[in-house]
Design a protein around this nucleic acid. Structure first.
Length: 723
DNA sequence: TGATCGCGCCTTTTT
DNA sequence: GGCGCGATCA
């Protein structure tokens, strides 16, 4: 396409003046503060291309950090078009975690961490924490593994090692002890957790100026997407890496900061300003995604947050249709409304894949899924049980991890008796005790079993060990997919899973899917495969080739856009979540979450809530989200009738509470029979009929070229012609 | 050793 | 309404 500077000229012309200014800003620190849908990622991508094509930067001297693997992959694809495959391949593109994982593998000598370390995911981390709490003889009711893990994770994100951990409380002292043991246990297993990837890399750079200097010299340009969601460890890494050249290019939107609970610190934006007096700040305020109605609603919600930089977002896309607000009876009724509405809009030319249904908590997906299944409508679900967190997948991966490093205890404990082979709790605890006494791994103990074990256990262990050693020996000449085949065959894993239930079949299908993924890794080693598996998230696998509505949490929706968006469960307690009620900072984050959801929509927004909602198996009445009150009524067609909640009696008396009969306030039609109209794809035509259906207006148009079409006025972008 | 049952807590969000 | 965990029994 355009692998040269002339091509770049044309690309630059496609950008608006502010975007151009950002892309072509001279070296030195730059901060792009931009609203949703303003082409942030596009600016970042163009900046990379511009550096290569106009500034003759070597591709290998550029590092771009994205928030998800998916974003990294899409950016690389785009850059392949702009720069050609060979140059695109030399760019360093990826998440902080993936980038750090690679650095640590390369710098094994300096860190003293084995090159063969495995990455422990959230599930592994929790297991380890539980183990430590048990080993220390602590009460897991008083020291909840999840809470302790959260505290340790937060400490790591602030680069606080165990020895410096000090909260001045007794509880904190105990956490400190758990933290110390946890790190020791991780090390003994040759593991690093998610947070270690960042912390250990920052420590490496802090303690080895020579190593750091190498990276500082190499990476002349560092670019960061979604900068508002960086945590302290990540900010430190950026400071370290850009310490020599100072050419940092960050793209951020404070209003979309929704990961404070994970340690993200939007104050990093201020830090960046303070640390770089010569920082060039550029605002991007034009929105290319949404209608003015959607932007107005989003602004009306976000403007209540304190301490934000006011941005004047605008669009040239026009007013667009009103926002539909729907009150359903309960979550099933709400789900039915979603399904019915999707059915209706798809009849008018919207594709399934154009629709997204969002919610605050994963638990809300159940009622929605049920309704989709009942209606026979396809859907794609993001998140709930992540693929790599599924039991069967973790089992197979644990076998692979054992082959990779038989001394790794967490995987050993997981699968030594999977499928059941008579190695029960008594046997495993005997092995673990012996291992601890001798200061070796369980794997080594297996070679020299303690005498006190019964003959039956001895035989079972010997068989298992033989099997494992066979795999380890075979590792050299087998691909990852072939290794999976061997494991599945030797353990009869298929028989174990396929118990005749539907769930069993599904689990087996997942194993086959993992095998398919592995088959694509033909060239890669087991080590690389395992590293990738640990860092992949579910959104990353969201493919565009399935035409189905997407169900996802508001968090996963970050960075995505859809023509038609449903935000469900708009109730106090859910959004904002009740856990955030008593903390103003958390409430501000809930509001930003709502803002992110609203601004995912390009054309049409549906906001739904349920009058009663079942939580923890109990159905309770729920109040509308306070955020709904902030949306001006004229945007939702409710100017005449104030929004009002029905009482239980009113619900009971109304015979029409089922979705479909219940409609949002009616707006007046914009089209009438006899009008001439123009459509971008279908050309000119004559309006035959127009009726208002819910919040949408359905227009039948006889087009000169393509004949009669029924369109939704709001979505179709029909232009009225004079005369 | 492994299957079954009751209990408590749970659900905020994920690289 | 479900999952993990501990106690109890075949």
């Amino acid at each position: 396409m355009c692998y040269n500077a002339a091509g770049m000229d044309n690309l630059i012309k496609e950008l608006n003046p502010q975007q151009q200014k950002a892309v072509t800003a001279s070296d030195g620190p730059v901060l792009v503060l931009a609203g949703p849908g303003s082409g942030k990622t596009r600016v970042l991508t163009h900046r990379v291309a511009w550096l290569v094509l106009e500034r003759d930067a070597a591709p290998w001297s550029i590092m771009a950090v994205t928030f998800t693997n998916k974003a990294a992959r899409e950016m690389r694809e785009r850059l392949e078009e702009l720069l050609g495959p060979s140059r695109a391949r030399r760019l360093t593109l990826g998440t902080f975690h993936a980038t750090c994982a690679r650095v640590l593998r390369r710098e094994a000598e300096a860190t003293g961490i084995s090159r063969d370390y495995v990455i422990f995911d959230a599930d592994d981390q929790l297991r380890l924490i539980k183990q430590v709490i048990k080993d220390l003889g602590l009460d897991d009711k008083r020291y909840r593994p999840r809470a302790v893990h959260g505290a340790i994770s937060r400490a790591k994100n602030e680069l606080i090692p165990p020895e410096a951990y000090d909260t001045g409380t007794y509880y904190g002292e105990v956490v400190k002890r758990i933290y110390e043991h946890y790190q020791a246990l991780l090390a003994a297993n040759g593991g690093l957790d998610f947070d270690d990837l960042l912390m250990k890399t920052a420590q490496l750079f802090a303690q080895n100026p020579a190593v750091l200097a190498n990276y500082q010299e190499r990476y002349v340009h560092i670019l960061v997407d979604e900068f508002q969601d960086t945590n302290q460890a990540q900010y430190t890494l950026l400071r370290q890496l850009s310490g020599m050249q100072h050419n940092l290019f960050c793209v951020a939107d404070e209003d979309q900061s929704i990961y404070a609970w994970r340690g993200a610190d939007y104050r990093n934006i201020r830090r960046l300003r303070d640390d770089h007096p010569d920082l060039l700040t550029i605002l991007l305020e034009e929105n290319y995604r949404s209608t003015q109605t959607i932007l107005d609603a989003a602004h009306a919600v976000i403007r209540h947050n304190p301490d934000r930089t006011e941005k004047a977002l605008f669009t040239r896309r026009g007013q667009g249709p009103e926002i539909a607000v729907h009150e359903a009876y309960d979550q099933d009724d709400e789900a039915q409304f979603v399904v019915d509405t999707i059915t209706r809009v798809t009849r008018e030319g919207v594709h399934y894949g154009d629709c997204a249904v969002m919610y605050r908590t994963n638990a809300q997906s159940r009622a929605l899924e049920d309704a989709f299944v009942r209606a026979g409508m396809p859907y794609r679900l993001v998140g709930a049980t992540r693929f790599y967190a599924r039991r069967e997948i973790k089992d197979i991966v644990a076998f692979l991890r054992l082959i990779h490093n038989p001394a790794e205890g967490v995987s050993m404990a997981r699968v030594v008796n999977i499928p059941p082979r008579s190695i029960g709790q008594k046997t495993t605890s005997a092995l673990e005790n012996a291992a601890q006494e001798r200061g070796v791994s369980v794997y080594e103990v297996m070679h020299d079993l303690p005498d006190k074990l019964g003959a039956r256990a001895q035989r079972a262990l010997a068989t298992f060990l033989e099997m494992l050693e066979g795999w380890v020996a075979a590792r050299e000449h087998l691909t990852v997919a072939q290794l999976i085949d061997r494991v599945v065959e030797d353990t009869h894993y298929a028989d174990y899973l396929r118990d005749g239930t539907e769930e069993g079949e599904e689990r087996w299908a997942n194993v086959l899917e993992l095998r398919n993924v592995a088959a694509e890794y033909e060239e890669t080693t087991l080590t690389e495969f395992l590293a990738d598996v640990a860092l992949v998230s579910d959104v990353d696998n969201l493919s565009d080739d399935v035409d189905a509505p997407t169900l996802l949490t508001l968090h996963s929706a970050k960075g995505l856009e859809f023509p038609v968006v449903f935000i469900t469960g708009l109730e106090d307690g859910l959004l904002p979540h009740s856990r955030s009620f008593d903390d103003p900072d958390q409430m501000a984050e809930e509001r930003r979450l709502m803002y992110v959801g609203l601004t995912r929509a390009k054309d049409q927004l549906y906001l739904t809530r349920a009058f009663r909602r079942t939580r923890y198996g109990e159905s309770d009445p729920s109040a509308p989200s306070r955020f709904l009150d902030d949306i001006p009524p004229q945007l939702t067609g409710g100017a005449k009738k104030p929004r009002r909640t029905r009482t239980q009696t009113q619900w009971d008396q109304g015979s029409d509470y089922r979705a479909g009969n219940l409609q949002s306030p009616v707006s007046k039609p914009q089209f009438r029979a006899g009008q001439r109209v123009r459509h971008a794809d279908f050309g000119d035509g004559l309006v035959i009929e127009s009726r208002v259906d819910g919040a949408d207006e359905i227009v039948a148009v006889a087009f000169e070229d393509v004949g009669l079409k029924r369109l939704m006025a709001g979505l179709a972008n029909l232009e009225r012609l004079e005369g």
